[in-house]
């Protein structure tokens, strides 16, 4: 067994990146959490448990994904007592997992790293409008591209966002960090994500549909999240911020050899 490679530590923070594709896109966030609890046990990950009569695993997921969306960039942070190497852990997890959920990275987080949930700053998406839901004005890819670029070129895109408690006006434009349409009519977007401001790709597309004079069906989109980013801040010795940049969450950790 890999026992001799075990690295003993008191408590270690691990960041796991995984994909969620195929039929499991219909599994909700809470069930994905339950899935990981059981997956960790099956894979023999030495998870750290809370104490008490019903001990549980300590976990933090980055930006819960809505039901129906696929992703190649999901993240969960866990705590372990000891760990195998990154590659061994990935292998063990994938052997114990299903086709639709596959682990692509397993890294150790340095002491003091903010957890996945609170570090999220942006996310990449690829969105495809299903043929049968495309309004005729954007039916061909060239038209789609042209109209979408037009849509983006507006200096502000104000919509009313309704939450349970209130309605407020939001300008989507500054929250769209990047966006483009490729020749296959697939829309790539990098959107502001997180607890303060959170822009969902559905809202962008719904607004775009309205812009071209159509109402979007709730079933119109195939969405895949590609990556989730955190804000990496480098500081000088006095603690002053030198630079800030978005980096994929996995890059906050380092590979375990």
């Amino acid at each position: 067994m890999a026992q001799q490679y075990l690295k003993e530590v008191s408590a270690l923070k691990i960041r796991i990146k995984f994909s969620k594709t195929g039929a499991v896109r219909f599994i909700g966030h809470l069930d994905v959490m339950r899935y990981f609890q059981k997956l960790n046990r099956r894979a023999g990950i030495d998870v750290k448990y809370s104490t008490g009569f019903s001990p549980h695993q300590i976990m933090s997921f980055a930006a819960p994904l809505g039901v129906g969306l696929e992703s190649h960039g999901e993240y969960v942070d866990i705590e372990v007592n000891s760990t195998m190497s990154s590659s061994e852990s990935i292998k063990a997890l994938n052997n114990a997992s299903i086709e639709g959920i596959q682990v692509t990275s397993y890294v150790e987080l340095p002491e003091g790293t903010a957890n996945a949930m609170s570090s999220v700053a942006a996310a990449d998406y690829i969105v495809r409008v299903k043929e049968q839901y495309k309004p005729t004005v954007i039916a061909d890819n060239a038209m789609l591209k042209k109209r979408f670029e037009e849509f983006l070129s507006q200096s502000s895109i104000v919509v009313t966002k309704a939450s349970k408690k209130s309605e407020r006006e939001v300008d989507l434009r500054p929250l769209i960090y990047k966006a483009s349409v490729n020749e296959n009519g697939e829309i790539f977007m990098q959107l502001c994500t997180g607890s303060a401001e959170n822009l969902k790709p559905e809202l962008v597309l719904e607004t775009f549909f309205r812009y071209v004079g159509d109402k979007m069906s709730q079933f119109a989109l195939d969405i895949c999240r590609l990556e989730v980013y955190g804000l990496y801040t480098s500081k000088d010795e006095n603690g002053n911020v030198i630079s800030e940049k978005l980096i994929p969450l996995e890059q906050f950790g380092k590979e375990i050899l």
Binding site: A23, V24, F26, G28, D31, A96, S97, I98
Partner: peptide
């Protein structure tokens, strides 16, 4: 609960 109908569990 669409997960009732998709199968493919562990």
């Amino acid at each position: 609960k669409p997960a009732r109908y998709i199968g493919h569990e562990v």
